[in-house]
Computed example of a mutant assay.
Amino acid sequence: MTDVIRLLTRAQKLLRTTTDAAMQEHGVRIGQNLVLEVLWDTDGLTPGDLATRLDVATPTVVNTAARMEAAGLLERRRDPDDRRLVRLYLTPKARAAEAPIAEARREIAARALAAVTPAELSHLESALTKIVTALSTVES
């Protein structure tokens, strides 16, 4: 069993390093691409809404949003109907990064999965889903 954990850890580190390098080419840090992905789909979310969709804590989103705002990727605006709420909106710079980041992610996936058969991929997705579910229930 420890070999599986070791391999998962190694794969995750390599994937993170590869993804980080690819995202940096577009002025985005690792993890920020996930925030962008959600906002490309639904712009103007609150940090709490975004945290729920990403399954992370709201303070994590707030801190990430502050860095992304400083990098010119996001704008924080007060909700016009409820001034207590802040909403996160993409800047033109973030919108322009959508296609290149999507392409970079496709290339990473193609490289990572090049030697994996469709049947193996199906089993891998199933196994990883089970692992995530098992560990998520421990965290709760």
Rank of each mutant, 00 (worst) to 15 (best):
V61A: 07
L34Q: 13
K130V: 14
A57V: 08
A104S: 01
A22G: 06
A22T: 06
A11Q: 10
R78W: 03
D49C: 07
S140A: 14
A115R: 15
D49Y: 03
D55E: 06
P118A: 07
A57T: 10
V62A: 08
V38T: 05
K130L: 15
A109M: 07
D81G: 05
L90D: 00
K130G: 15
T9W: 10
L34M: 11
E125V: 11
A114E: 01
T64H: 08
Y89Q: 02
A70M: 02
T19N: 10
R16Q: 15
L50H: 04
M23T: 06
A21R: 14
Q12V: 14
L7H: 13
V38I: 04
V138S: 12
A109I: 07
E107T: 09
D82V: 03
S126T: 14
A51M: 01
A134Q: 10
R29K: 10
D79G: 02
E69L: 06
K130M: 14
A66W: 08
T58K: 08
S140H: 14
Y89C: 01
A65V: 01
D20G: 11
L54P: 05
T64G: 09
E37Y: 07
L135P: 12
D55T: 13
G31S: 05
A70D: 00
I30C: 13
R6I: 07
D41A: 12
R10E: 15
R29V: 09
A96V: 03
S140Y: 13
L121D: 09
T9G: 13
E103M: 05
E120D: 11
A94L: 00
R6E: 14
L39C: 02
R29G: 13
R6Q: 12
T129N: 14
L7F: 12
D49S: 10
I108L: 03
A99L: 02
S136L: 12
V28Q: 08
E107Q: 12
A110W: 02
D55P: 04
I108D: 00
R10Y: 08
D49P: 09
P47Q: 01
A102N: 05
A112S: 09
I30K: 06
L15T: 15
W40M: 04
E103L: 07
A22W: 12
G44R: 08
N63G: 11
L8E: 09
L14I: 09
R111P: 01
L90I: 01
A57W: 05
R78T: 05
K13C: 12
P59G: 07
E125S: 14
R53M: 04
T2E: 12
L128C: 10
A65Y: 06
A65W: 03
A22E: 08
R83C: 04
R105G: 00
A127P: 09
A134P: 08
V116M: 07
T60F: 06
Y89H: 05
E37A: 11
R87E: 00
V86W: 04
L8A: 15
V116L: 08
R76W: 04
M68H: 06
G72A: 02
S122D: 14
M1Q: 10
H123V: 13
M23R: 05
T137V: 15
N63V: 07
D82T: 02
T64S: 11
L50M: 01
A21P: 09
A57H: 09
V132S: 15
T46W: 00
A112I: 05
A65R: 07
E69H: 09
G44P: 02
D82S: 00
I108F: 03
V4P: 10
P47W: 01
I30M: 11
